[in-house]
Design a protein around this nucleic acid. Sequence first.
DNA 1: CTACTCACATGATTTACTTCA
DNA 2: TGTGAAGTAAATCATGTGAGT
Length: 231
Amino acid sequence: MFDHSSAVVAAAELDSLVTARKKKNKNTRKFSDEQIRSLEVMFESESRIEPRKKTQLARELGLQPRQVAIWFQNKRARWKSKQLERDYSILQTNYNSLASMYEALKKEKQTLVAQLQKLNDLMQRPPEERQSYGQDLGGNSILGESDSGDATKCESDIKPSLSMERSEHGLSVRSDGDTSTKAEYFGLEDEPNILNMVDGTMASSEDWGSLNSDDLFDQSNSSSHWWDFWS
DNA sequence: CTACTCACATGATTTACTTCA
DNA sequence: TGTGAAGTAAATCATGTGAGT
């Protein structure tokens, strides 16, 4: 059944293997500050040390070339994982920023849709009624007035402050907070289609596709240095 | 102050893979 | 085209060290 003697032998072999390995590692000593400094300086200039420089540096520091090679291997691996953490953090920050921008824009869009709906209603009325409606409003644009409820409490500072202009081409909406005119042409003959432009879907995927993914890493500190590792 | 545990840093090893002569 | 040496990345091990209890 169970062979005790061979089990004991196997355990002993394993034990001696472990002991041998421990002995090997027993010689491991932390490198001196000076050695580390020199290695770091070399690593700054090149993450992969040339064989010639490796031998030279090893001699200067009183180390085996093999130790220098191992130090560079470990350094590359650990630097890379740190860099991954940094990049993850940057991505997370950028994602959060984009998400809040998205929410703010969504709310702004909701406000604009509501305003557009009011304008449509207004345009459906006969001219006389339109005029009196305008007087009822005291000459103030209906645009810019806020809906009740929390929906208009944007976290960002985006405050729709718009005015309406009627021209022979149609209706345009201008943002006062911006010197440029963000005008949209609304064909009045096509009133039923007006809302199609803002039918509840956010930007199309193509719009988002115009985002440059490189920008997500555009944080000055992201040196090109580390990309070398991927090549 | 001492002993203990735990997390972390670091030097070294192993393994699988790639490159090049 | 097959082959062996050399180098590398990735995973892992072994040990030292400092902080907390």
